[in-house]
Computed example of a mutant assay.
Amino acid sequence: MIFTDDTAEAMRAAVHLANSAQDPDTLVTRADFDAFLAEFPYTGRIDRDADELAVVRALRPRLRRMLLAPRDDMVDEINDAFRDIVFDAHVVRHDGADWHLHAVADDRPLAERILAETAMALLDVVRADEGSRLGVCADDDCEGVVLDLSRNRSRRYCSVACTNRNAVAAYRARQR
């Protein structure tokens, strides 16, 4: 295991959010937001209203910047995030997950909790010197963020769609 489960899950959620801003935007409606929350079930206060959706949408460029920053710049991004968080650290166990740290209170806004979890996860990335696990999709027409948690560091594409498109193109090139 490269990272703890909560670190990996926080990075998956941040990558998903950052990539949702790619064309076409996949976090537009409340139904899109509900689908995100179903896939990444955050604990604590969730308002599920238009204001909360707007604040989470506005967080996406910052998450992308944090995820793709070189190591020393990533530390600066983490520190900037920590300055914007109202800390109320506590250790919890819930929903089948073993003991882990929540950096902010459950009643804080969802976007702040997402930012806190992302910053904490990226701190683990920096400490393990595993920044190479984050990058930009190898598809020439895509700018999505790739999170590679594979053992052999073989993930190159941000999604199955990009993987399939490139596999088909490679197959067709070989057939010619």
Score class of each variant (00 low, 15 high):
122 L>C: 13
169 A>Y: 07
82 F>S: 08
32 D>L: 06
11 M>S: 07
150 S>W: 09
84 D>K: 12
13 A>W: 09
148 D>I: 00
151 R>I: 09
55 V>Q: 10
8 A>K: 00
131 G>L: 02
43 T>P: 11
42 Y>L: 15
35 A>I: 09
36 F>G: 08
68 L>H: 05
79 N>F: 07
13 A>H: 10
45 R>G: 15
145 V>C: 06
18 A>G: 02
171 Y>E: 01
166 N>P: 06
118 T>L: 05
161 A>P: 05
116 A>H: 11
19 N>S: 10
99 W>G: 01
86 V>R: 15
107 D>M: 10
112 E>C: 12
105 A>P: 02
75 V>H: 07
9 E>V: 04
76 D>K: 12
131 G>Y: 03
172 R>I: 11
87 F>T: 04
74 M>L: 09
5 D>F: 03
1 M>H: 07
140 D>G: 13
147 L>D: 03
153 R>N: 12
87 F>E: 04
58 A>T: 06
64 R>N: 12
2 I>F: 01
165 R>A: 14
96 G>T: 06
55 V>I: 13
80 D>S: 14
68 L>T: 03
24 P>M: 04
9 E>D: 13
49 D>N: 15
51 D>E: 06
44 G>V: 14
10 A>L: 03
121 A>P: 00
50 A>V: 12
114 I>W: 14
116 A>Y: 07
55 V>F: 07
20 S>I: 00
59 L>H: 13
72 D>R: 13
3 F>P: 06
144 G>D: 08
80 D>N: 11
90 H>T: 09
120 M>K: 01
121 A>N: 07
129 D>L: 01
122 L>I: 06
22 Q>C: 14
59 L>D: 15
38 A>G: 01
49 D>T: 06
147 L>Q: 00
30 R>P: 05
42 Y>C: 11
135 G>C: 02
80 D>A: 12
158 C>Y: 07
29 T>G: 01
130 E>V: 01
113 R>V: 05
65 R>Q: 13
